[in-house]
Design a protein around this nucleic acid. Structure first.
Length: 309
DNA sequence: AGTTGTGTTGAAGA
DNA sequence: ATCTTCAACACAAC
């Protein structure tokens, strides 16, 4: 469940580990997940085998021999800035995560060699893309459900993809002042839970942190955004910053597949407030945490601390 | 054993 | 226009 804190963890890892390394090879068994920025943006199906192969060929031609300069984050997108004016955009979607280590690929079978956390954890065994690096390590994508996508091309074109331009201000950015936050959130979505999840309003928040942010702010997930008082909006904004910053410092949440680039779980799992804690006692009042469905997503909250009014 | 639930997000349907 | 549902895919848990 890579949301802002998980994606930031990955970006920090890449900047610490991979700066200055050259990409020397590409292997994948899911060419559908990879495309060149100049290729048509339509989603490929299993029947588009030839198209996917062509995309892959263009991708390989563009990426090989590029040097990794640095990584940045925009919402939940990872941008790896390369030499030769190229950028690689990676969106991990639901179960994708990036790993740095060593693998042996023999007749299409990927075998992990190191580090130990990658070798031993079953969640790190769904390798679908491996980029060989000039220091004999590799950068790999593990992704059970194969929803993650990787787009490579000229930096200017990648920056102009709808994936980037459709995004609202980043949840932790300085430009997202309390005033801007309040104005945008009040007009978004039928409920505050759904409003927090809209990337075109605020980027970076997903299901885990929207639940914890609402709990921290003592606001019911079904509240209509327009009815929030100034006091509640202030609490919501503060909670958003505090919860996300804490999750970044703890290197994200691993209630499911997420792992950092060393293959290790995030520390926020043990610190989460309500997400997937239904029927557990509320940490403030001991009332049982409840789970409901809001806009097709699960929402967890304390019925006592977060009254609907 | 079949159904339901999982993070995302866009496209299609109402 | 706005909101809801579904689809992409795989697997665990009931």
């Amino acid at each position: 469940m890579p949301e802002l804190p998980e994606v930031q963890t990955v970006v920090d890892d890449i900047n610490r580990e991979l700066k200055g390394l050259r990409i020397v090879s590409v292997w994948t068994d899911t060419p559908k997940q990879i495309r060149d920025v100049n290729a048509p943006s339509k989603r490929l199906t299993d029947r588009d085998f030839t198209e996917a192969e062509k995309n892959l060929a263009r991708f390989v031609k563009d990426v090989e021999q590029c040097v990794i300069q640095r990584a940045t984050r925009r919402g939940k997108n990872i941008l790896i800035h390369l030499s030769k004016g190229k950028t690689m955009l990676i969106h991990l979607k639901m179960t994708g995560h990036l790993l740095i280590g060593k693998w042996a690929i023999v007749v299409g079978v990927v075998k992990p060699l190191e580090p130990a956390a990658i070798v031993s954890d079953p969640y790190n065994q769904y390798i679908h893309l491996v980029l060989g690096l000039s220091d004999a390590r590799q950068l790999a994508l593990s992704d059970v459900r194969k929803f993650a996508k990787v787009i490579l091309g000229d930096s200017a074109k990648v920056e102009k993809l709808p994936d980037i331009t459709n995004l609202g201000p980043d949840a932790l950015s300085a430009e997202l002042t309390k005033k801007a936050f309040s104005e945008h959130i009040k007009k978004a979505g039928p409920t505050i839970k759904q409003a927090l999840l809209k990337p075109e309003v605020i980027s970076g928040i997903g299901n885990i942190y929207s639940d914890d942010i609402l709990y921290q702010a003592k606001i019911h997930p079904l509240r209509k955004p327009a009815t929030l008082t100034n006091l509640e909006l202030r609490r919501l904004y503060q909670s958003m910053r505090v919860v996300l910053a804490k999750a970044v410092s703890l290197r994200g949440t691993s209630t499911s597949d997420f792992r950092d680039t060393a293959g290790k779980e995030g520390g926020y799992t043990a610190h989460r407030l309500v997400y997937q804690r239904n029927n557990h006692p509320c940490q403030r009042c001991a009332v049982k945490i409840k789970r409901i469905t809001v806009g097709g997503r699960s929402a967890h909250f304390c019925p006592q601390c977060q009254p609907l009014k």
